[in-house]
Design a protein around this nucleic acid. Sequence first.
DNA 1: ACCTGAACACCGTTCAAGT
DNA 2: ACCTGAACACCGTTCAAGT
Lengths: 228, 228
Amino acid sequence: MIARATDGSGNRDTLNRERVVRAAAELADERGIDSVTMRELGRRLGVEAASLYNHVTGKDDLLSGMADLAAAEIDLPSIDVDWKEAMRRRAVSAREAFGRHRWASGLMDSRKWSGPYSLYYADRVLGTLINAGFSPVIASWAFIGIDSYIYGFERQRSNLSMSEDVDTVEVAQETLAAIPQGALPSLAAVAMEYAEKPYDEAAAFEFGLDLILDSLERQLEADSATRR
Amino acid sequence: MIARATDGSGNRDTLNRERVVRAAAELADERGIDSVTMRELGRRLGVEAASLYNHVTGKDDLLSGMADLAAAEIDLPSIDVDWKEAMRRRAVSAREAFGRHRWASGLMDSRKWSGPYSLYYADRVLGTLINAGFSPVIASWAFIGIDSYIYGFERQRSNLSMSEDVDTVEVAQETLAAIPQGALPSLAAVAMEYAEKPYDEAAAFEFGLDLILDSLERQLEADSATRR
DNA sequence: ACCTGAACACCGTTCAAGT
DNA sequence: ACCTGAACACCGTTCAAGT
C-alpha cells in the first residue's frame, strides 16, 4: 500500500542508512551537490526531512557517507604490481571516479580522512612505495604529492570551464576574440592552438602525472646506484 | 557623531565595496569562512545586513572579491628570471598566501577564473614557459600541472589535520597507538618516523614541486638536444 | 522502531520607507 | 545616495505526538 515499499528502486524493504546515502549520491549526480538538502532528499525518498534523522545523525554524516561511497570506487593498488603502474592506475581511476561524481572531490576536502577504510587505503599505497625501495618519509611525501596533484587537477576541471560537455574549441575561439590585439600574446598563442585542436583532458592529466612519477623513478634509480 | 565614521579602522569616510570585502576577509581570517554571513558582516561594520547590498551585488560577489584579494598576494613571475625559479617562487608564494588565508583556496575552487587580472596572470605564466622553450600546448599542460599541485597540496593540509598549529609528533604517536599490532605495517612505519621527527610541511611541498619542475627541465633539455 | 507536523534559529535577499 | 525594518523563502535540526 505504501508507495515507497515498491517504487522504482526495486528495494522493497524499509529505509536504512545505505539507501539514504545512495539516494543522496544519485541526487547529487543528477542535480548537483547544492540540491542535496534534507527536505529535497526526503521528498525523493517519499518521507519527511525529519525522518532522515532516524538513519543518519545529521547532514554531516550524510555527506561523509557520500564521500565514502565515491572513495570506494577508486582502485586500491595491488601489492604485486610495479609501483609506478600501481600509482598510475590509482590516479587514473580516481580521476574517472571524480568524473562520474563531480561533487566527490569537493566533499573529500572538508571531511576528515581518518575512517578505517582510508587508513587501510593509505597503508596499501605507502606499502607499495616502501616495497619499491622508497624510505618511509619519502614514500609519505610521494603519496602526498601524487594525491595533491590528483585532487588539484579535479579542481581545475570545473575552474577553467573545461569540462567534458564543453566545446573547448569554441571556448578558445571566444577567448581569442576577447583578447585585444597585441595584449596577452602568450595566452593568445595557446588559445590559437586549442582553437584548432581541442583540449585533451586525459592527456593533460597523464602528462602532469608522469612528470611526478618519472622524477620519482629517477630518484629511486639514483638512490640504488649510490648504495651499490 | 556616527561611530562607524571614526572607528578603529582609521577609515573615516563611508562604506564602499573595498571596505566591505576587506572586512569580510578579516572576518574569515579570524573566525573561518563559515562565519562570514551577511548579518555577521553587517554587525562588524556597524550596519544592517541589507545595507551591504548597496556595495556588493550579493554574497557571490562578496566571495569573488575575497578571492581576488587573496589572489593579488601571489607573486607574478617576472619575465626576466629563469623559468624554473619563477615557477618555484610563484608556487611558494601561493602556498604562503593560502597559509595566511585558509579560506582562499576553497573559494577559488568555486569561483570562475576569468577576470581580467587572472587572464593577465595566466599570460605571464605561459609567457615565461614559452620563452623558456616549451611549446604552447606543453606550456599550458605544465601550467595546469603546477597549479593542480599547488591547490591540491593546500587541500591536504586541512585534511590530514597536519596544519601548523598541530603537533604532528603527537598525531603520529596517537596514530601509532591506534593501529593494532601487525596491521597496517607501512602506515605504522611512517608514523614511527614522524613520532621522532615532526612532519615538515614546507619540505614536503617543495619535494613534490621539484618532482614536477625537474621533469619539466629534463624534458626541455631532451627536446633541445633533439633539435640540435 | 520509525514517521509526522510543527516549531526554532538561522540563512540570503528584496523592498518600501525613511534621511 | 545610503540605511533601516520587516518580510519572504529557504535551510538544518529538535521534539512531542502519533502508529
